[in-house]
Amino acid sequence: MTILYKLGDSLYVNVTNKCPCACKFCIRIDHDNVNGEDNLWLPHDPSVEEIIEDFKNFCLEDYKELVFCGYGEPLIRIHEVIEVCKYVRSMSDIKIRVNTNGLSDLIHKKPTAHLLKGYVDGLSISLNAPTKEAYLEIVRPRFGIESFDAVLKFAEEAKEFIEDITFSVVDIIPKEQIEACRRIATERNIKFRIRTFIE
């Protein structure tokens, strides 16, 4: 079971395969890994204890950051993510980032960004569309049309608690949509990044 895996100079944490979205471009459709090595399909969601145990196989000083991002939405398990962050913080000042779809509030049916305060240094929030309708079409969230506004709200609230917030889009969406997403980020004083689609 692959819980921790290396990608570039970052160490990634794969905490779940569950996700409330079915993005048209999701790498999970055709691949079982992102680095050519580790199968990221989990037989079960690892416990906090299993995740912490796996850290014994890695030296955090060898990496520039720790990233919660695997083959699912990490904030489905927001409380487990926080517990792992507490453990990491007890022994390292490594930068901690969470890659998320931004739907945590809908998942947990309450505001959640504040829970990450003091544990997470950065959030990369997948936007991938500039309107409710386009988001529904390409991301296909199980929460329906309200999902897009929930992502924007989560990002705005997260700015109060987390220093480094980025909206990201994948580079296969139309250029005009990418630029519209960039404007959404700029209007909200949120950083913007275009991600390369992984074949």
Score class of each variant (00 low, 15 high):
61 E>F: 05
57 N>Y: 12
78 I>S: 03
109 K>N: 15
57 N>C: 11
23 C>D: 03
72 G>H: 03
55 F>H: 10
46 P>W: 06
72 G>D: 11
82 I>A: 01
49 E>R: 13
33 N>T: 15
88 V>P: 06
105 D>H: 02
48 V>E: 05
77 R>D: 09
71 Y>T: 06
65 E>S: 14
91 M>S: 14
80 E>D: 13
61 E>W: 00
114 H>C: 01
79 H>Y: 13
109 K>C: 11
37 E>D: 13
115 L>Y: 00
93 D>H: 11
50 E>H: 09
89 R>K: 15
76 I>C: 02
50 E>F: 10
97 R>Y: 10
53 E>Y: 15
75 L>W: 01
112 T>E: 03
100 T>H: 06
27 I>N: 07
48 V>T: 12
42 L>R: 01
31 H>L: 15
74 P>A: 04
107 I>R: 07
29 I>A: 14
85 C>F: 09
34 V>W: 10
68 F>S: 06
28 R>A: 11
83 E>M: 09
105 D>E: 01
27 I>R: 13
114 H>Q: 09
86 K>M: 01
106 L>M: 10
24 K>I: 11
97 R>V: 13
110 K>T: 12
80 E>I: 06
62 D>Q: 09
71 Y>M: 12
73 E>P: 05
44 H>G: 08
86 K>T: 01
85 C>E: 07
31 H>S: 15
42 L>C: 02
102 G>N: 02
78 I>V: 07
42 L>Q: 03
61 E>Y: 10
53 E>F: 14
54 D>N: 14
112 T>H: 03
56 K>V: 05
33 N>D: 14
36 G>M: 13
28 R>T: 14
26 C>M: 07
33 N>V: 04
109 K>L: 12
73 E>C: 04
100 T>D: 06
88 V>R: 00
63 Y>K: 03
102 G>D: 06
71 Y>Q: 01
25 F>T: 05
47 S>Y: 12
23 C>Y: 07
84 V>I: 14
94 I>S: 09
103 L>C: 00
95 K>Q: 09
111 P>S: 08
54 D>G: 09
89 R>I: 12
102 G>L: 04
108 H>F: 05
73 E>D: 11
109 K>G: 08
114 H>K: 13
96 I>M: 06
43 P>D: 12
37 E>H: 14
29 I>W: 15
94 I>W: 12
105 D>W: 04
53 E>K: 15
86 K>C: 05
44 H>E: 07
88 V>N: 04
75 L>S: 03
37 E>G: 12
53 E>M: 14
27 I>L: 14
42 L>D: 00
62 D>A: 07
105 D>F: 00
81 V>F: 04
106 L>R: 05
30 D>P: 08
51 I>D: 00
34 V>H: 08
33 N>S: 15
61 E>R: 11
55 F>R: 08
31 H>Y: 15
101 N>K: 06
32 D>M: 10
